[in-house]
Design a protein around this nucleic acid. Structure first.
Lengths: 139, 139
DNA sequence: ATGCAACTTCAAGTCGACTTGAGGTCAAGG
DNA sequence: CCTTGACCTCAAGTCGACTTGAAGTTGCAT
C-alpha cells in the first residue's frame, strides 16, 4: 500500500503517518523510490495507536509500548492503572452528564436556584468531580 | 478576598484567574489600588467554569454561557447535546476500560493473539470506539 | 518612613498533536 | 519522452489553555 491508501483505509492523514513515523510509532515496510510502502500490519498498528490515544495515553507513552522489534510490549500494571484512571473519569463524566441532562430539562429560571444543579456544583467544587483530569471530547 | 485567597480556596492559580479575566470569563469585584478584590460569588463562578471544562466545553463556549450581566444564560438544547456527546464518550471509554482490564489480566503471551483484545481492536478500527472524540484524562 | 512580599502588566514561552507551506523528486500514464 | 500529480523533506505554524519571566508598583507590618 502507498501512503494514500493507508490514509484512506485507516482514516489517518498522510501527514499524520509521516509524523508518527518521525516519532517512531510506526515504520514503512519499505520504499518505492522515495515513496513509502506499507504492509497490511500497519492498519492494526494504527488501530492500536488509536486505541491508546482514546484511552488517554500520550504518543510517547504509546511509543514505549512497542518493543524495538515492533511487537506490542505491554506492561500489565500500567494497563491496570489506566483502567482505574479511566474508571474514575467515567464516573465523573457520568455525574456531569446527569447534571447536564437535568439542567436541560429543569424548569428553574436560573440554574443556580435548582437544588440538583447546586448539588452538582458543590461536588464539582469539592473536587469530587473536577477539575483535574480534564475534558471529555471535542464533539 | 484578594487573588491569593481566591486561588487558595478555589484551587485555581492566580495566573489563571488573570487569564480568565482577560478572556472575559470572570471579573474582579473591584480593586484595592492595583490589586484585584473578589466577592464570594467568584467561587461559584469558578466551580461553574470547572464544571464546563470537565464536560468538554472550551473556555470560549463557557464564556458564551454567561450573559453580559454575569448570570448564567444556559441554552438547554446545547446542554442536551453535550449530555448526549458525553454519553457517547462514556460508552467508548467504558469499552476501552474493559479492554484494558482484560489485557492486564489476560494470559496470552501476545495481546494480538487474544480474541478479546482483538475484538476491542476491531471495534476501535471500525470507528465504534475511536478515533474521533479524543482522550480521557492526563492522569 | 521604609522595606519587601505580594501584587501588577505585557510579552513570550510551553505542551501535545498535528497541519501547512515552500520547494523539490519521481513513477506512471499518455 | 514528457508531463503531472502524488509523493517527498524540513521548517514553521496552529490551537487551547495556561505558565513564566521581566520589569514595575504598592499595601501593610514593623
Amino acid at each position: 500500500m502507498d501512503i494514500a491508501e493507508v490514509a484512506r483505509r485507516s482514516g489517518v492523514r498522510a501527514s499524520t503517518l509521516r509524523f508518527y513515523e518521525e516519532k517512531g510509532l510506526i515504520a514503512a515496510a519499505g520504499r518505492r523510490g522515495l515513496r513509502r510502502t506499507y504492509g497490511p500490519d500497519i492498519l492494526e498498528r494504527l488501530a492500536l495507536i488509536s486505541l491508546g490515544r482514546t484511552a488517554g495515553f500520550t504518543l510517547d507513552e504509546i511509543g514505549q509500548m512497542f518493543a524495538p522489534d515492533g511487537k506490542p510490549r505491554i506492561d500489565r500494571a500500567r494497563l491496570a492503572d489506566k483502567a482505574k484512571a479511566l474508571d474514575r473519569t467515567i464516573r465523573r463524566l457520568g455525574a456531569i452528564r446527569d447534571g447536564l441532562r437535568h439542567a436541560a430539562a429543569c424548569p428553574a429560571k436560573n440554574h443556580l436556584e435548582c437544588p440538583t444543579f447546586r448539588r452538582l456544583l458543590d461536588r464539582a467544587s469539592t473536587g469530587a468531580i473536577g477539575p483535574r483530569g480534564k475534558p471529555a471530547s471535542r464533539t
